[in-house]
Write a protein that binds this DNA or RNA. Structure first.
Lengths: 210, 210
DNA sequence: AGCCGTATGTAACAAATGTTACTGCATCAC
DNA sequence: GTGATGCAGTAACATTTGTTACATACGGCT
């Protein structure tokens, strides 16, 4: 495990801390689609992402969903962090977007490490900052963009985190992420296809030029 | 100043830290409408709010605005925190919602205090947590609610932070905060008036029952 | 009172998004 | 092959929100 930690977090965290992570962390490998966090559940450990991507969703009382953002290699989950610290229920849902490798850190280390390691404090603050920015960018999208631009942005993000220009999703799945209906997504995708930006197949979308 | 600090933060922060705040902080009193942070500007100090309320807005490239949330007594600005730490431009705009009293802390204290004081770390983490939750609640509103419910929520928040059931705003100002048009707000307010929930006057709205 | 600037009311229309319903097509199990 | 199932295409329509245009009302000022 130690080598993977070093590769991903070596430039961020000091050696002594990497060693501690190696000792107390648990390596975890999850398949695409695995539900890492259920909305409303309590969280007992926080993930450091080694590879793959995690998508973070907001879920309302009626079970409606909305994609907030993706986490990638080198990221951690700010919501988990803060839930650990204030011991609250999770407000979000986390699903493995791709097969992913994680290291799970028991939450009781959090307070110790923030006191002891400057690099850990910086890492945690930076994580919060990034998530806050991403949340605000999500607000931007919903508030300021029309659905066609939101869809474009979604496709862009998707090919980035999956590192693949083919998106293996049904229109319905995309509709859930953007909190709209399947018909709307089909309509807009068709428009994009006519504009030569994507090619539509069954269960997948090839992004040609965005 | 020391007394006001103690009254507002005494239960949160340890005495030694309160004393430091007293020494390095600058007391600042701003009138309603004062622009504390311009979008795109760099931030040199962080505010602790003693009294009053601050509204935090997102502003896009075209100058369109959207209310993110209000800060109140005992709060601090998480965006300022994180901008200080990563030395980035502000992504937001802050306006005094009411007359307000603040203590401004030079940013170079941040790193020292997070290392030195456990209570400060907790305060900072809690602030981040609250802001992230509020940002996500804003996302909820925009994504899951129709404009009439968003308006209701807005009026509720407004009477809470102002501690006054009369809202002294024009329809146009409300429209800016919710990123819609004046006509839409007038229309919906009229509907609320017919439902007996508000009473409309020139330049102000009495909230009767929400 | 008469005037002016601003705020509000309202109608009519436009655009974006959501909904329902139905079609055809591919795939899979049998 | 047949039937079942799930996905995508599309039309027709409903609803929500945004836009334009104009009328009216209010408050302060002279």
């Amino acid at each position: 495990m130690i080598q993977e930690i070093k590769n991903n977090y070596g430039h961020l965290l000091e050696d002594e801390l990497l060693e501690e992570i190696n000792q107390v962390g648990t390596f975890k490998e999850v398949p695409e689609g695995f539900e890492l966090i259920k909305a409303g559940s309590y969280i007992k450990s926080m993930p450091l992402i080694i590879s793959g991507a995690i998508k973070i969703l907001r879920e309302d009382n009626d079970g409606d969903e909305l994609l907030l953002y993706f986490l990638e290699q080198g990221d951690t989950c700010a919501m988990t962090l803060s839930c650990c610290l204030v011991n609250q229920k999770s407000e979000i849902k986390a699903i493995a977007e791709t097969d992913a490798k994680l290291i799970m850190i028991p939450i009781d280390k959090m307070e110790k490490w923030t006191a002891k390691y400057k690099s850990w404090r910086n890492f945690v603050f930076e994580s919060y900052h990034k998530r806050l920015i991403e949340a605000i960018e999500t607000i931007d999208s919903i508030a300021f963009l029309n659905m066609d631009d939101r869809l474009l942005k979604y496709l862009k993000d998707k090919i980035k985190v999956n590192q693949d220009h083919t998106i293996n999703n049904t229109h319905q799945q995309i509709a859930y992420d953007l909190h709209t209906s399947r018909v709307v997504i089909s309509r807009l995708l068709k428009k994009l296809e006519k504009a030569g930006k994507v090619k539509l197949n069954r269960n997948n979308i090839e992004v040609l030029d965005i």
